[in-house]
C-alpha cells in the first residue's frame, strides 16, 4: 500500500449501459493515459438496463480530461469524479486465517473489535467478513498479520454522495441537430 503515499487515488463513479464491451471501452481510456485501476466495482443500478461502477484510479496527473473523454462514450450515461466531495464509501473483504485451538479465541476477539463476522469455520481456518472503508480493512489485515493469513479478497470501493443528492442527474439537454452539410453560404467570386 506504499503506492498510495505517492499517487492521488481518484474515486470515480459512473452510470453505464448494461452491455457487453462497456467496461472495455472505459478501461481503454484509462489505459491510454497510463492510469492504473486500484479497484473497480460493478453492479446493477436502481434502473433496469443501467449499471453503476465505482473506480478507484491512480492518476499522477489531473484525471479531469480522461473523465471527460469517458463521458463522451455513447454507453456511458454519466460519470463524475467524487474525490473531493462528501461521500460515503465502503468495501467488503473476506480474510481466511489459519487457526488452531490455541489462537482461535484471539482471532474471534479481533473480529469482534472490528465488527467483523465469522462466516466460515473449519478445524484449521476461519473466514472473517469485514465491511468498512479501506483503512479499516487495512487495519484488520495488519493485526491479523501476526497470524497466518491464507487469503485476502476485497470487493473494491463502492461510493455514494452523502445526503439526498443524486449522483447522476439526467442531462435533459436539447435534442442534437443533424449534420447539415457544407453547401457554401456565400458565392465564390
Amino acid at each position: 500500500m506504499s503506492q498510495r503515499d505517492k499517487i492521488q487515488p481518484h474515486t470515480i463513479i459512473a452510470l453505464v449501459e448494461d452491455r457487453p464491451g462497456v467496461l472495455n471501452r472505459i478501461v481503454s481510456k484509462w489505459r491510454q493515459r497510463g492510469f492504473n485501476i486500484e479497484s473497480l466495482a460493478v453492479g446493477h443500478s436502481e434502473t433496469a438496463g443501467l449499471s453503476r461502477m465505482t473506480f478507484v484510479v491512480d492518476a499522477n496527473t489531473d484525471a479531469e480530461q480522461v473523465v471527460k473523454q469517458v463521458d463522451k462514450l455513447v454507453d456511458v450515461v454519466n460519470i463524475r469524479d467524487i474525490s473531493t466531495e462528501e461521500i460515503v464509501s465502503r468495501e467488503m473483504a473476506m480474510i481466511k486465517v489459519r487457526v488452531d485451538a490455541g489462537n482461535r479465541s484471539h482471532i474471534i476477539e479481533i473480529a469482534d473489535l472490528f465488527r467483523a463476522s465469522i462466516v466460515d469455520v473449519s478445524s484449521e481456518s476461519v473466514i472473517l467478513e469485514v465491511t468498512g472503508d479501506e483503512a479499516k480493512v487495512d487495519a484488520l489485515f495488519e493485526l491479523l498479520s501476526d497470524y497466518t493469513v491464507i487469503e485476502l479478497v476485497r470487493t473494491g470501493r463502492v461510493a455514494m454522495l452523502r445526503g439526498s443528492a443524486v449522483s447522476h442527474p439526467r442531462d435533459e439537454d436539447e435534442e442534437p441537430e443533424r449534420f447539415q452539410g457544407f453547401e457554401p453560404p456565400y458565392s465564390v467570386k
Partner: peptide
Amino acid sequence: ELKGYRPRLY
C-alpha cells in the same frame, strides 16, 4: 434514443 449521448450545442 441514446441515454448516454446528448451533445451540447448552445
